[in-house]
């Protein structure tokens, strides 16, 4: 963890991107009419892992 705090400027963009992806995904899940499957599952997916928001954007939105 020392490395992380010492070089925070270098890692900050990573963290910001993660947070933005997460927020956009959550807002989208809330505002979208219908997701591919129950909405609450996608909220959990977005929370669970770093890849969650991306997985939601690719597979969670209904293609129509």
């Amino acid at each position: 963890m020392e490395v992380l705090t010492e070089n925070i400027q270098l890692f900050l963009p990573l963290i910001i991107i993660q947070v933005v992806l997460f927020i956009v995904a959550i807002i989208d899940i809330i505002r979208i009419k219908e997701t591919n499957g129950p909405k609450w599952i996608w909220v959990i997916v977005a929370f669970l892992s770093i890849l969650g928001p991306i997985i939601y954007f690719i597979f969670g939105r209904r293609r129509d």
Binding site: P13, L14, V20, L21, V24, P53, I54, F57, R61
Partner: peptide
């Protein structure tokens, strides 16, 4: 469908992961 938001972000993520 938010592709203009998340695709650039993911590509940036992929491009800085390896240097770090």
């Amino acid at each position: 469908n938010k592709k203009w938001i998340w695709v650039p972000l993911v590509i940036i993520l992929l491009s800085i992961m390896d240097p770090l």
